[in-house]
Simulated scan of single mutants.
Amino acid sequence: MLTEVIATRYVTPLREGGSLPGIVEADDLGTYVMKFTGAGQGRKTLVAEVVCGELGRRLGLRVPRLAAIQLDPVIGLGEPDQEVQELLKASGGLNLAMDFLPGSIGFDPLAYEVDPAEAGRVVWFDALINNVDRSWRNPNLLVWHGDLWLIDHGATMIWHHNWPSAAASAAKPYNASDHALARFRPDVRAAAAELAPLVTEELLTEVAADVPDAWLVDEPGFDTPDALRRAYVEALLPRAATVHTRITLDEPTPDRPSQAPGWLTARLDPTARKGDRA
């Protein structure tokens, strides 16, 4: 299970994304980026963050440490932004926190070189989890102390938004032509040889167990949180073995729109009005 901390101070909102995460301090003296259950994307975004973030960490990729964080909305009473106030009020209870990386900068492919081996591992991992939100338009990568860090995995495993079609969706190919690291000649086959054998049923079961029950209850078609956890294992396990054979890496097309589904791009759009994200 994730370490659980208690939010003690709301510092400031982050306005880079549509979910309006915030920087908070916690009772373990840590500083975190907090993502809220009351945000428009809903709790499945947090589930995806945990499953994919913890899986990435166990595969040796750099992902900020995650924690479950208890929020009492009263800590934000001094925040003047009405939208933030409403978000905090809607998110009392258990939320998600990830380590804040002070001094990190957003990844720029023109300023930072990535070797083909590391690029291959990231592309293979994103193909496994079907990450539609690590393109050159929005890399969701940070550089911290000279290393590449992966963030924001809420727009992954899009099959979990429609479980009846999950098996078919999880078997689909992955077009990495517009991936943020495509220009670095990612060695996907080497990555698959290294990482695919590590993605075992035991590992996926362990990762799924990190998701709090509170974010898994009342899912249509599943009687218990553990039954839903099992569905994540069954979707990811067969994909890990063969997804490298279905990754496309063509020339990027700067004029091509995002390949994310329309319902998802609307929710991820930082310019969307609050009502649009409900």
Results as ranks from 00 to 15, higher is better:
1 M>Y: 10
7 A>V: 12
11 V>W: 10
12 T>V: 15
16 E>D: 15
19 S>Q: 14
19 S>K: 09
20 L>P: 00
26 A>T: 15
27 D>E: 09
34 M>I: 10
39 A>N: 12
40 G>P: 01
41 Q>E: 14
42 G>H: 10
45 T>W: 08
47 V>M: 03
48 A>Q: 09
48 A>V: 01
49 E>C: 02
57 R>L: 03
58 R>T: 00
58 R>H: 11
58 R>G: 03
63 V>P: 08
68 A>Q: 13
72 D>N: 12
72 D>K: 01
75 I>H: 05
78 G>D: 14
79 E>Y: 08
79 E>H: 05
85 Q>K: 14
85 Q>A: 09
86 E>V: 11
87 L>W: 12
89 K>P: 00
90 A>K: 15
106 G>H: 12
111 A>R: 15
114 V>N: 02
117 A>Y: 09
119 A>L: 03
122 V>L: 05
124 W>R: 00
125 F>I: 03
126 D>N: 11
129 I>S: 04
136 W>Q: 12
140 N>H: 08
141 L>Q: 03
142 L>T: 04
143 V>K: 01
146 G>S: 02
153 H>G: 11
154 G>V: 01
156 T>E: 06
157 M>Q: 13
158 I>W: 13
159 W>D: 07
160 H>Y: 11
162 N>H: 14
162 N>M: 08
172 K>R: 15
179 H>Q: 04
182 A>K: 04
182 A>W: 02
183 R>G: 13
188 V>T: 13
189 R>V: 15
193 A>W: 12
194 E>R: 13
195 L>K: 06
196 A>D: 11
198 L>T: 09
198 L>G: 06
201 E>T: 15
203 L>D: 06
204 L>T: 05
210 D>T: 15
213 D>C: 05
215 W>G: 05
217 V>I: 13
219 E>I: 04
220 P>D: 08
221 G>D: 02
221 G>M: 02
225 P>A: 07
228 L>G: 02
229 R>G: 01
230 R>S: 07
230 R>A: 12
231 A>P: 00
232 Y>A: 01
236 L>T: 03
237 L>H: 11
238 P>T: 03
240 A>P: 01
242 T>Q: 12
247 I>W: 00
249 L>W: 00
249 L>N: 05
252 P>S: 08
258 S>A: 12
259 Q>K: 14
260 A>E: 01
260 A>G: 10
262 G>E: 14
263 W>D: 14
265 T>N: 07
265 T>A: 15
267 R>G: 11
275 G>T: 10
276 D>E: 15
